[in-house]
Structure formats: structure tokens, C-alpha cells
Design a protein around this nucleic acid. Structure first.
Lengths: 340, 340
DNA sequence: CTGAAAGCGCTTACAG
DNA sequence: CTGAAAGCGCTTACAG
């Protein structure tokens, strides 16, 4: 491998512009310790020679990095895709670049990926903690002083920043709406018991019904997950047990769609004899037939907030870690707008 | 900043394990130039001291990197999310980590992001080129010998690897199906004229109809884009012009859903008096009412193939750049299964 | 505002 | 298989 001058360095630029490497570095970092004229000359040389700054070398020396580790269960889940999109937009405005790792809800893989992104020198970490995360899993980041922002799923008892939709309130809104429409027999296909959204939405649902005096025998809950497939599977199981219900709350819109497919096949008419409510307000929800009632969780806005918070932390904000719940919004559509 | 021993380095490990730094490095890189016993001792020391390898320093010295730049128009488009998911899975199996940048179909931003990821020392680049990409935009990568794999959208006249669905054939399949169902008056809400999928699907549609003897006056094409919103907008415009058509082909499933919403409002009954076909076979397509006929483009499989191809290139495969078209699959569902 | 030099944490010939 | 030393391309005191 002996390409001649395969890489242009600061010292090449210094030579070409007739300045010192310090001056080139100062131009790169815009420290403002030089004349406008010199700056222009240096920039011109960089242009002409096709200089591309080596962030690795910069990071090695300065300790500063513009890489952000993003650890999520599965980027192909629309919620996370929307989150990442908004996150990336804000990060890149500030010159940061996300390094994304899918963790597949596997704590071992999460630990490996956390080490991996830290090894790549990320300045900060954004994470929706995997099922089975323990507090110690964050030590590797915390001892190094790398700011960590959690979202969507909360780790209890650890002083970490958290931003997420108010899952409890979201379920409460949905359930109260169904009570108002006259429903008295309920079912829920809930999320994962091990995660904040799963637990909190179920709690919001069950407690609201209890407060309204609905007997336990008319409340059927199954924990499942967050995919179409588990909606489908749980709907089939519910059909097999001949549970009675006129209102079904699903953990999210994907689960709703999976469940709806099976329930329709079994003769239930959604929006007429069965009310259906989901969460996340996917762009598709409105386009479905019947349009799906859903609770907007603002995952795009959360992505933005997480990015901005992380940037503040990177700039040295030492305020104590905060938990921030975003207020959800119920969007009533045809799938639940009839009265019993 | 004077934390004592905030960072454990190879020389700390060398000291702790009673070996030289060369031995530690050889353990890290598994060069196999040492006894099993020594290796174990070194690994134990790494465990105990909480060593995390600094990939930046490694890259700086060796020139080797395990970062891959991924440049796409918009990760929240399901097609790209699915692609990235599959890509990430294969890359991470091989120890590579993707650095994802959304480019928003802006060639200026694409150039900036390309330079950014190269500055971060990526070993390879995966890209769905933005609208307006010119051949010169790849020089920065090519001159540095960084392998580039393009997907979905093809850059003509540049020797770069490409993997994508056979968009022409996909449209041909869809159009032939509609002809077989007895349709004689057609409309298409096509993609972007500036992209391969947009152009090729339109060409497959128009040429198939021409070959079947459908007069031009019964073929209505509008180029639009790849979002729900543009489906909606173009459907409205078509309604306003009172075009007659019994079959509508949309650039993808998102466009289909947007268009369907407006057409339904206007009184068209999809699956009865209007046949609708999309592309990409989103997981939702089957769950819609009526279920949407769509052409599967295998974006997950393409993600896998791209990752594997890139890894071969990184391992030194010097075969000439290849273009690989993946055969699409037509999935006929209720939205188009009636006959005229 | 500039120049010369040290050093970030690795990998890599090189000599043993 | 090991040890001592150089060097990747930057940034950063330091002296001018």
C-alpha cells in the first residue's frame, strides 16, 4: 500500500497555506484566534487539496467526540423509526452523528453494544432500555462520565434523565372514553409486563375501570408485546376462551391491527359491535377502515426533546437528572365512536 | 480535569497481566501469536480493570475501522427502516456498527454527510442516493478507496455496486394483473421522476399498457413522490380533472393509502369499482380494508445482501462492481381481485 | 497570531 | 512468543 499522499493532513494544509498547524487547527475549531484573511487562506487550501478532517485523531487528542450512541430495541418499529428520525435531525443540526445499534430486547446484546459504542468514543448515549436491563448495566457509561438519556422505558431507582409519554394517563384517557361510550365489558391486549409502557398502560386501564365500579370479572387483561403478531395471537386466544367484551384496548396500533384482523375474521364488526383503541397514533391509523382511535404519544417530539436535553448535558448542564412525562392526546375515530 | 486513572489503557493491562503491550494488542486482535494461557491471563486483567478498547486510537494507527456510513433519504419511511434493520443485523454479526445519516433528499446535505462519515473514519458506505446526486459526489469516497454500495436508487454510468428490487418488472406484474382482471382505463400516481424506482415503475406500467394496445388517452400518469401526503394530493387533483379510470397503480403502499383516503371520500369503492395496487408490501397492507394488493420488493433481504456484499468488499473482493436486481412478487388481495 | 513539540491510545515492524 | 519504540493525525500548552 503506497499511494502517494493518499491522505491530506493538517500539516499539508499548513504548508500549502503558509501557516502553522496550530493555525489550521484553530481554523477547524473556529477558536477565533486569527485574522479573517488567514482563515480564508486556510479554508481555500483545504478546499483545493480535498482535506477531510480526521475526527478520530481529534477525539484521541482532545477527548471530545461528536458521535452519539443510540440503543433501541428495534428500529423497524414505527415508533422508534419516528423517534430516530427526529433525534437525528436535531443532533445533526448541532454537528452530532448517531451511531445506531438495535438491541433486540436482549440485555446481553445491550451490554455488548453499550461497550461497543463507548469504545467508538461516543460523547453521549440515548437508550430505550432492553427488557431485563439492570442498574449496573449503566455503570460502564456512568463511571466514564458519559451522559445517558433514557426514553420510553424508565429504569426505576437510577438517577438518569428520562423522557417519555405519560403512559398511565394515556390509558386513562382511552378507558374513560370507552366508559363514556357506554361500554361495561372490557378486554386489553397489553404490552410487556417488564417495560414501563406495558405496565403503565395496563395500570391506567385497570385502575380506571376499578374506579368506575366495573367488576373484575368484566375486565380481561393479557400481557403480550408490541407487534402485530402478538396482537393476532392474543386475539385468537381470547376468541378461543369465549370471553365477552364490547371494548378492546390494545397496547399500540400495531397490536390493534393484528388483533383486528383476527376479530374481523371471527365476525366482530369493529366500530359497530366492538370498540377498538390503540396507542401511538401511527400515520396509518387514520387511514384504516374503520379509522382507528388512538392515543398520540408524540414520539417525534420526544426524539427532539431527548436530543436537546442531551446536547445541554454535553454542554455541561449539571442539573439533577429529571423525569419528563409528555401529555398524551386521545384521538377518537370511527373504531370507537359509537355508543353502546 | 484530573481524575486518577479515568481510562484504562493497554499498557495498564500489560502491567496487570505481566506482559507487554504487544501481547495485549495481539490478544485484542486475536492474531493467535500467543499461548492460550497468556490470552486468558490478559483477558482476565481486562475484565477486572474494566478495560474498553479505544477504536479511535486503533483506527488512527492501523487505518482499519468497523464503522459503516449509512446514508438514506428518510429512516422513518418503512422501506428504509426495514432495510436498516436487516443491514444492522448482518453488520453487527461481523463486528461492524452503522453510522446513520438522514439526507432528506438534499444533495448538498448528502455531500456534507458523506464527508462527515468519512471524517469519522468509516470503512465503507451504504447509500440510497439523494435526488440530484451527481457522479462527482462519490469522488471523495472513491479516491480514498472506501467501498460504496448503492441500493434502491441507481446512479447510471458510475461503476458502483448496486442492489435493488427490479422496479420495472414489479410494475409490469402489477399492470398485467390489472389487464387480466379486465381493466381498460388506467391511472398511475408515480414516484419521483428523478429516481430509479419512480422512473422504472412508471416505465413498466406505461410500456405494458402500450404493448397491450391500451390507447394513450386511457392512461393517466402523474409523478409525485413516496409519501401518503402526495398520494392524497394527487388523488384530489385527479378527482378535480374528472379523469376516468377503473384501475389505479400507486408508487408504493404509502401513496396508495393516501390516495385511497381521498378516493373513498369521493365515493369510489376500492375493491368494487376501483382496483388499487401498491408496491413494497408493507406489513400493514394485508391488514387494511380492503386488503391492499401490493408488489413485494424485499427490502429486508436487500439490506442483508447489501451488508454481505459490503463485507466481501471490505475483505478485499476485487470483482468488478455488479448490479443486482431482486425479483419482485405480486401479492393479489381484495383491493384488486374483482373482475370488470 | 505563530511555531515547535508533546501526547492522546492504540498497532506494528523490529530485534531478541 | 515478548519488549521497546515509533508513529497514525490531530489538539494543546508554551514560548515567542
Amino acid at each position: 500500500m503506497s499511494l502517494k499522499k493518499s491522505k491530506i493532513t493538517v500539516s499539508d494544509i499548513a504548508k500549502a497555506a503558509g501557516v502553522s498547524v496550530a493555525t489550521v487547527s484553530n481554523t477547524l475549531n473556529d477558536t477565533g484566534r486569527m485574522s479573517e484573511e488567514t482563515k480564508v487562506r486556510v479554508k481555500k487550501a483545504m478546499q483545493e487539496l480535498g482535506f477531510v478532517r480526521d475526527y478520530n485523531a481529534a477525539k484521541l487528542r482532545s477527548g471530545r467526540s461528536r458521535l452519539i450512541g443510540v440503543l433501541i430495541p428495534d428500529i423497524s418499529v414505527p415508533l422508534f423509526a419516528e423517534f430516530c428520525n427526529a433525534l437525528e435531525a436535531v443532533l445533526s443540526e448541532h454537528g452530532y452523528l448517531p451511531v445506531v445499534a438495535n438491541v433486540s430486547d436482549d440485555p446481553k446484546r445491550q451490554r455488548a453494544m453499550m461497550e461497543e459504542v463507548i469504545g467508538h468514543g461516543v460523547a453521549g448515549i440515548v437508550i430505550c432500555p432492553s427488557v431485563g436491563t439492570t442498574r449496573g448495566d449503566f455503570d460502564i457509561a456512568i463511571t466514564r462520565g458519559i451522559p445517558v438519556i433514557t426514553f420510553s422505558r424508565k429504569i426505576e431507582g437510577l438517577a438518569l434523565d428520562y423522557i417519555g409519554s405519560d403512559h398511565y394517563q394515556a390509558a386513562q384517557l382511552a378507558t374513560e372514553h370507552l366508559l363514556e361510550q357506554g361500554h361495561r365489558k372490557f378486554a386489553m391486549i397489553a404490552g410487556l409486563r417488564e417495560t414501563t409502557p406495558g405496565r403503565e398502560r395496563e395500570r391506567g386501564f385497570s385502575e380506571t375501570l376499578k374506579a368506575a365500579g366495573i367488576p373484575k370479572s368484566d375486565i380481561h387483561v393479557r400481557f403480550c408485546g408490541y407487534t402485530r403478531e402478538c396482537g393476532r395471537k392474543n386475539a385468537l386466544e381470547m376468541l378461543a376462551t369465549h370471553i365477552e367484551f364490547s371494548a378492546l384496548v390494545c397496547h399500540n396500533d400495531l397490536v390493534s391491527v393484528g388483533a383486528a384482523a383476527e376479530l374481523k375474521k371471527a365476525g366482530r364488526v369493529i366500530g359497530e359491535d366492538l370498540a377498538l383503541v390503540g396507542f401511538d397514533n401511527l400515520p396509518e391509523s387514520e387511514a384504516w377502515t374503520p379509522a382507528l382511535t388512538s392515543v398520540e404519544g408524540y414520539s417525534g417530539a420526544i426524539g427532539k426533546d431527548v436530543a436537546n436535553l442531551l446536547i445541554r448535558r454535553l454542554e455541561g448542564d449539571k442539573a439533577p437528572p429529571a423525569t419528563q412525562w409528555i401529555e398524551p392526546l386521545l384521538l377518537v375515530r370511527a373504531s370507537s365512536s359509537f355508543t353502546m
